[in-house]
Design a protein around this nucleic acid. Sequence first.
DNA 1: AATGAATGAGGGTTCATTCAT
DNA 2: AATGAATGAACCCTCATTCAT
Lengths: 194, 194, 194, 194
Amino acid sequence: MQKKNEQTMSRIYDSAENLFSEKDFHDVKMEEIAKKAGVGKGTIYTYFKSKEDLLFQCLTHNVEEHQKGFSEVINSDKDFKKILPEVFNYMYAFFKAKSPLIQGILSLMPRLKLSDTDINKARQMFQNGLNESSKFFQRGIDEGVLINSVTSRQIAIIFQKMFDFNVLFAFYGEPEMSAEDCYNFFKKTFFRQE
Amino acid sequence: MQKKNEQTMSRIYDSAENLFSEKDFHDVKMEEIAKKAGVGKGTIYTYFKSKEDLLFQCLTHNVEEHQKGFSEVINSDKDFKKILPEVFNYMYAFFKAKSPLIQGILSLMPRLKLSDTDINKARQMFQNGLNESSKFFQRGIDEGVLINSVTSRQIAIIFQKMFDFNVLFAFYGEPEMSAEDCYNFFKKTFFRQE
Amino acid sequence: MQKKNEQTMSRIYDSAENLFSEKDFHDVKMEEIAKKAGVGKGTIYTYFKSKEDLLFQCLTHNVEEHQKGFSEVINSDKDFKKILPEVFNYMYAFFKAKSPLIQGILSLMPRLKLSDTDINKARQMFQNGLNESSKFFQRGIDEGVLINSVTSRQIAIIFQKMFDFNVLFAFYGEPEMSAEDCYNFFKKTFFRQE
Amino acid sequence: MQKKNEQTMSRIYDSAENLFSEKDFHDVKMEEIAKKAGVGKGTIYTYFKSKEDLLFQCLTHNVEEHQKGFSEVINSDKDFKKILPEVFNYMYAFFKAKSPLIQGILSLMPRLKLSDTDINKARQMFQNGLNESSKFFQRGIDEGVLINSVTSRQIAIIFQKMFDFNVLFAFYGEPEMSAEDCYNFFKKTFFRQE
DNA sequence: AATGAATGAGGGTTCATTCAT
DNA sequence: AATGAATGAACCCTCATTCAT
């Protein structure tokens, strides 16, 4: 019984994440989510309180997964310079898939009818993420690879934002930046000049 | 479309811009716009074809106004270093007010039922804006103030994005960046080290 | 002053009659009527109480005009058989142009917010029309041209309905009946067999 | 489109047919249909794409049902003269109930946003109806009961129109024709004189 | 008298959510 | 637990009518 639940829930998650990542919250219909998940519309409400809750759980689900993966990548023993390209590949793939989902949340969050507990949970989650990547970039600074005129926390934020650039680029008709482009750009901007 | 009363239109613009800047397209109700503008619901449709058209016109209206103001600021005779702080003040104020509106458009644009003419107009408008600011940053590069490891166009894009950072900052519970903070940050990142 | 009024009113009549004859009451917009009449929307309300009143006045206007013309045609001294083709030409032209207007009224009438006076006026008008044409067909019966197995009044009603056949014919994809076809049909149906 | 509950659909059909038969398309409100059907407003949209679609389906539904019944009546083995009064009873009852609905369609059809498939289906349906009754009247001609100075097709059309006479009669304040009156009238008009 | 900008009641339609099965 | 038919609040938009000029 529990197993079947897990599977159904998982299918709903996948479907919802896919759709929320693809389009705006209001343009994703519950019916669509149900259909893609291969379940009835009512079933979703067995697992999630509301559409907004579903979005929120998706975010949590995604970000936690992401941060687990991200931690694995950055907590390698190799030195900073060796890891960095991997980090970019990882982030690039993640943001390409999930950026709209996260953007959606960020702009929706203020109006989300969520409990304070939930909001704090989200905040904490993001905080942890930022802390984690800050530590990583601090390592870069400490190893003398990155400039120290900006803090590791600032770098971490810009780093995240960087993967959103493609939205603008697409709009301007510029070619998209590849993971490698991002890496080179980062290098130019934040690496210490020899 | 355009009928008579310049003032009514202006009031609708103001109201719509305010609301579209404050929340998501789907969460702004026509009635709300009308109420805030102090006009009847139907009046809006005397000036704008649809809600989507209204959003689009708001964008055009805003961006054009912004670019006029921006051009005035950057096309001063003073040298780059003197102008830069003013530019930051200007951009900061503008983005603080309009960033959500522009973000909204950017994420909505692909699904907007706009004529090709309108889309091209928008694209052109943004292109012009980017070109204008690119030229400005090129001046900074040419005058030896800015690093030349990134192109002026890239700087222009990062420059724009920078004013979005506060959205993330607010979410992380970090204190907002002031215009001056932005300026200092920019200096640290893009100024040539002496 | 009075003259100018007459002219404006006349232009509104023409415009409204045209449009009401062309399409359904609800599909004719006041703005459209005003535009076609070359007047402002508000002007119509100087002459007519409401859209429904306008429709009603149009009908009255038309039917009275029609009946005046019709009377002229049938009250000729020529004998019945001579006049009949002319009558068909007249009716055919009139119904081709006005049938939708009249149909519109007939189906709308029950819900028309008209004063009892107005309704009685309309009823009287139609009654007069029927009486007039009944008299004519009675002449045909009396002159031994028409069969006497149906009353003149019944003939008069069928006669009117006949000109509506083309609506059905068009729908069935049959070729329209010309005035002459109508005449021949009438002859076959109502003429006494020699 | 078609979901499950046959009964709900049936209730919507009945309600819509009633109302569309009673008044003009534009004067029938979806809410009214829903209320009369004892369902929620939204429920209608589970079964019908739009108001226009509902009207169209009503027509199809009615006409098909009518033609099935009509066929049963006329395809009896009894001879023409025996069947005819039954036919009149049947048609009279049907048109008394449905004529306004059909009239409504016919005048609305040109502006209905229907697919070509739908329009052709409708046309075909009406054609079949006409063919069926034409065949019947042809039998009357062949059996020497009806005059042959008009074609069976023409008779079929007049026959249909005859049941609309009451609309005009009501308007003129004449007493309605009963089924028997219609029959007698038809006899007078189309029966071969002995 | 003439205008047309302004109005807002009203209607069609959507869709998150519920609940009987 | 799962379903999907049913619901109705909510929303965009239309258009007859009004009224200040």
